[in-house]
């Protein structure tokens, strides 16, 4: 199958996934105790107020009807109106999605930038003090909870040294990137620990491979052997790891967005769940599912590009 055909096939696969996830999240959201009305009106509302609002939102209709309405509208690209925010769901998500995407992308870049060279050093110095030091440092990073690391970075680098603003999102592309550096670094720290461990093990494994000996026997310099032969092969598994972790990274964005006051979809998702804002929960889950699917697709494509052994 040609590469273009493969991409098309994979993209088409997203459609049934989409529908299945739509159905599942529709049910799951409603399985949570409470409903948007109890969340919104709170403890003080009277029965009439509750009944009225429930009718207004169409929540008193049978589940089947609600689902068909939801599915029907969805196929037209209409995801409804946010119950809590009273604005169209697509508008809210479109407003908040870029921040999370940029944050996640930046975190990935930082994580890879941090992990790859250090994994390299650790592997080539395996057993000696640089390796031990690097592995210990990353272990600390991996074990530290995100909100703690985030607050620590804020206290030291933002409030303390004033190198960065204390949270927020800023204005303009440059402003956004500047404000997102610290939160991206926070996310990157635990992510990079995973990458570092994986890459270090992959490098060590590849170093034992016979083609490395063959390359050395050709009289190639250490640098050529390490980069062209060892690293290029070791990175194959790292690429897969990074792609598969996109979903996890999006999840980690939630806490980071709260600590750094970044207006992304992570916070939106949490707030919507607490508010039982069904339209937003449903739409956002679908959007995130599509993003993760696309990430998997891109990962596969990159793998295909890097590793000629992967069947096309």
């Amino acid at each position: 199958m040609s590469r273009a055909g493969l991409v098309a096939a994979r993209l088409l696969q997203i459609v049934p996934t989409f529908l299945a996830i739509g159905a599942v999240v529709f049910v799951l959201a409603r399985l949570l105790p409470g409903d948007p009305v109890s969340a919104m009106l709170g403890d003080r509302a009277t029965e009439e107020a509750v009944t009225r609002l429930r009718a207004q939102l169409g929540l008193d209709q049978p589940l089947w009807t609600q689902f068909l309405l939801f599915a029907g509208r969805m196929l037209h690209g209409d995801f409804g109106t946010s119950i809590a925010l009273r604005v169209p769901v697509t508008a809210v998500i479109a407003e908040r999605l870029p921040a999370t995407l940029v944050l996640t992308a930046l975190a990935t870049v930082l994580a890879v930038g941090l992990a790859v060279p250090l994994a390299f050093v650790a592997a080539t110095q395996a057993g000696r003090w640089p390796d031990t030091l690097i592995r210990a440092a990353f272990q600390v990073g991996l074990s530290s909870p995100i909100f703690y690391v985030g607050l620590l970075l804020l206290t030291v680098f933002a409030a303390g040294l004033r190198w960065f603003p204390v949270g927020g999102y800023g204005d303009g592309v440059a402003g956004h990137l500047y404000h997102l550096l610290l939160p991206a670094l926070t996310l990157a720290l635990s992510f990079s620990a995973v990458i570092m461990r994986n890459l270090r093990a992959a490098i060590l494994e590849v170093l034992q491979a016979e083609f490395v000996d063959f390359a050395r026997s050709k009289g190639l310099s250490r640098r050529v052997v390490l980069f062209r032969h060892v690293l290029r092969n070791a990175l194959l598994s790292t690429v897969t790891l990074v792609g598969l972790q996109v979903g996890t990274l999006l999840g980690g964005a939630v806490i980071t967005e709260s600590v750094f006051a970044v207006p992304g979809v992570g916070r939106l998702m949490v707030d919507s769940i607490f508010a039982r804002d069904y339209p937003v929960i449903q739409a956002l889950t679908l959007v995130l599912a599509v993003i993760v699917s696309l990430a998997f697709l891109v990962t596969d494509l990159v793998q295909m590009w890097l590793d000629p052994r992967v069947a096309r």
Partner: peptide, 9 residues
């Protein structure tokens, strides 16, 4: 197969 780098031509 082991002696050849799989990702290079």
């Amino acid at each position: 197969m082991a002696a050849l780098n799989p990702v290079l031509t």
